[in-house]
């Protein structure tokens, strides 16, 4: 587990030293969400109806934004090969990088979400569920994205392809996440949606680091 915390600390330190770049995803999330009332009009009823879905879609897109760099930079400067030949299992290293990615994108977005909910006039009944759903589903987004990022290491036009690979795989998370908030706003029990969202994240935790590590090993062959 030492390797896990070493990689986690390293990725967080790199993000801190890069300054604002790490916060790009959350800034994109906020600015993008703010654009919608300007685009579709400030009608509170309309905004309240679409708020949950909008916030979730923006969360997916913002997660995508930072995924390019998850392995690409380390692959280019050779750090990834050193990690691969280190005694620590590559799967554990990938898991650490996913956690770092989530701490830098998913967590800030979950923290910023109530503010977005306020701006989009989401009924207060849904706020807690929105944050809970983003906290539960966020790790799945980072993990599934990591598989796609690993597949695209060294690819031409990797950034464009990331959209095509990751977004279809993100759809279940989006459906359960937005569904939980809709249920809570409608006065229903959101626990079924949240349980499915948690199941998605658990399945992603079990499978994705392994798949991403396999993809990275093939990329470095």
């Amino acid at each position: 587990m030492n390797g896990f915390f070493a990689v986690l600390g390293r990725d967080l330190a790199i993000a801190r030293r890069e300054g604002g770049e790490a916060l790009l995803a959350v800034i994109f999330f906020i600015l993008g969400t703010v654009l919608f009332p300007l685009g579709v009009g400030p009608d509170p009823q309309l905004l309240a109806a679409v708020a949950a879905g909008l916030i979730w879609v923006m969360a997916l897109l913002a997660t995508l934004l930072a995924l390019d760099r998850l392995f690409q930079a380390d692959w280019r400067d050779g750090a990834l090969e050193l990690m691969a030949i280190s005694p620590e299992s590559l799967t554990v290293i990938v898991a650490a990088k996913c956690l770092a990615h989530w701490l830098l994108t998913g967590l800030p977005m979950a923290v910023a979400a109530p503010l977005m909910a306020l701006l989009l006039n989401l009924p207060p009944d849904g706020w807690l569920t929105l944050v809970a759903a983003l906290l539960l589903g966020g790790p799945a987004l980072s993990l599934i994205g990591a598989v796609c990022a690993a597949l695209l290491v060294g690819a031409r036009r990797g950034g464009v392809l990331m959209t095509l690979l990751a977004l279809p795989l993100y759809i279940p998370t989006l459906i359960f996440g937005a569904g939980a908030v809709e249920a809570a706003v409608g006065g229903f029990d959101a626990s079924a949606h949240l349980a499915l969202l948690g199941a998605t994240t658990l399945a992603a935790m079990a499978l994705c680091p392994w798949a991403a590590a396999a993809a990275l090993r093939h990329a470095m062959e």
Binding site: L151, L152, A155, A211, A219
Partner: peptide, 13 residues
Amino acid sequence: RAAKAAAILGLVG
């Protein structure tokens, strides 16, 4: 490389 990456994507999908 293309073959292996596509194979993994096929399994994930």
